[in-house]
């Protein structure tokens, strides 16, 4: 029996998606350091990011993360192409609003917005700090790379603040549908359990959306 593509692709998307969901929790927790008073935030944030960069374990997780994002995107693209082929002719009138959410019908579009965000976000931080592209990043008093300065200066540009905040909306929508669907895709079919998963998904999406969306504003107003 050949590989069952319908299930294989979805399983990859769900598994990588859930891994990315865990990553986001860690990411947002670290971002909360930015809310502390400036000097404490600077030293904590910089020493935290130095620890991450120097830990071999984190290096493995980082490669897993790159791999997850790439697999998530590639398989989503493959699925979208196959799904479009499965419905070549659209309805003249389609009232899909009455039987499903807009988010669930437009995960590809929302995902593309998030991908655009990731590209800009990586250019802002990853390319500068890890690849050394653009302006050189200085050191703080403790001799750590001053990632705090990179963050703070970026979030003192109102256009970036707006960009980061607005793009937190598609993130929240994507997480809400993705989180609860991933469980079903991976074969979790306990009725009450799924209801709890749906509630957790809502809370998780709100916390992530508000968290990632509001921190740039707080940094801007500091």
């Amino acid at each position: 029996m050949a590989l069952n593509q319908l299930f294989f692709r979805k399983t990859i998307i769900a598994a990588t998606g859930l891994f990315l969901c865990i990553f986001l929790v860690v990411h947002l927790s670290a971002n909360c350091i930015l809310l502390l008073p400036e000097e404490t935030a600077r030293s904590l944030y910089n020493s935290y990011s130095t620890t991450l960069r120097e830990s071999p374990l984190i290096k493995i997780v980082a490669y897993l993360l790159y791999l997850s994002i790439i697999l998530h995107v590639v398989f989503a693209l493959l699925i979208t192409i196959a799904n479009r082929k499965a419905k070549p002719q659209k309805y003249v009138m389609n009232s899909s609003r009455e039987n499903s959410t807009w988010t669930s019908q437009n995960m590809g579009l929302i995902g593309t917005m998030i991908l655009l965000f990731i590209v800009v976000h990586l250019a802002n931080f990853w390319a500068r700090i890890k690849l050394g592209m653009g302006d050189a990043v200085g050191l703080d008093a403790a001799g750590n790379v001053d990632v705090y300065e990179v963050t703070s200066s970026l979030f003192h540009n109102i256009y970036y603040v707006i960009f980061y905040t607005v793009l937190a909306i598609p993130l929240a929508l994507h997480l809400h549908h993705g989180f609860k669907s991933a469980f079903k895709t991976l074969g979790f079919y306990h009725k009450k359990g799924l209801r709890i998963v749906a509630k957790i998904a809502l809370v998780y999406a709100i916390v992530m959306g508000v968290g990632f969306g509001i921190i740039p504003f707080i940094v801007y107003s500091k």
């Binding site: 319908l6 699925i79 799904n83 899909s96 959410t101 609860k180």
Partner: peptide
């Protein structure tokens, strides 16, 4: 047939 993305429709 396409794959299920759990729109719930």
């Amino acid at each position: 047939f396409g794959s299920c993305t759990f729109t719930g429709a």
